[in-house]
Amino acid sequence: MLLRLATLDDIPAILALERTPMAREFVGQWSEDRHRATLAGGNARYFVSETDWGEVQGYAILRGLQESSLAIELKRIVIAVPERGLGRRMLKEVMRIAFCELGAHRLFLDVYEDNARARHPYESLGFQYEGLMREAARREDHWCNLCLMSILETEYN
C-alpha cells in the first residue's frame, strides 16, 4: 500500500518533512497545532507514505471534503527525497482517491510559479494551468506568484 491515512501520531514526522530545506522553499510552514486541528477536523484528510521499516517518507493533504461543489484541493504533497518517483506515485494515488473514493468533480492545487520540479508531474498527469495568482504567497522576505492548476473528473477518466 503506497498511502495510508495519517493519524495524530504522524504529526511529528509531517512537521519534520515540512521543515527540510527543500520543502521550506516551496511549502508553507504550519504549526503543530494547525496540523492537529486540520487533521482532527472533518474537512481534510492526511495521507502518509512509509518505507518498509515504517519511516514516513512523504505526506499529502486533501482539503474541501465537505464542500458541496465537489472540488477538492490538494493542499500539500511533500516527499523526503526527490527524483526517485515517489512524488509522482503519490500524486497518482491521491488523484485516484479524490476521484474514485471521494467522488470529486475537480481536483485543484496551487504551486509556486518557480517550482518547475513540482509543475512537471502535475502537467504530465493532466492538470491544466488555470491562471496566475499574483504575489499570493510570501516566502522569506518577498512575495511570490502561484499557479492555479486543476484536473476534472472527465479528464482523469
Rank of each mutant, 00 (worst) to 15 (best):
Q66P: 00
G131T: 07
L107W: 08
I72Q: 02
Q128E: 14
H35D: 06
S31K: 12
G126C: 05
A137F: 09
F26E: 07
G87F: 03
G85D: 05
D9P: 00
L107H: 06
L74R: 01
R138G: 00
S150D: 06
R119V: 13
A44E: 07
L17P: 03
I14A: 01
D114H: 15
L148Q: 08
E113D: 14
A80S: 13
P121H: 09
D10E: 03
I14R: 01
R139H: 15
H105L: 13
R89W: 04
R117V: 14
T38I: 13
R24F: 02
E83H: 14
C144G: 00
G131L: 08
W30I: 01
F47Q: 04
T38N: 05
C100T: 12
L70T: 00
E101M: 09
L70N: 12
R36D: 00
L107P: 06
W53G: 00
V111N: 08
L109R: 02
L125M: 14
D10I: 06
F47K: 07
S68N: 10
G103I: 11
V27D: 02
L125P: 07
I79V: 15
Y156N: 09
A23K: 05
F127P: 05
E101S: 12
A98H: 04
S124W: 04
M1V: 11
G103E: 08
R134Q: 12
L17K: 02
G85T: 05
R36P: 05
R138S: 10
D52I: 10
R84E: 11
Y112N: 11
R139F: 12
Q66V: 03
T20D: 03
I14Y: 01
H35Q: 09
D52F: 03
Y59H: 07
A23S: 14
Y46H: 08
Y59T: 04
A37S: 13
A16S: 14
Q66T: 10
L3F: 11
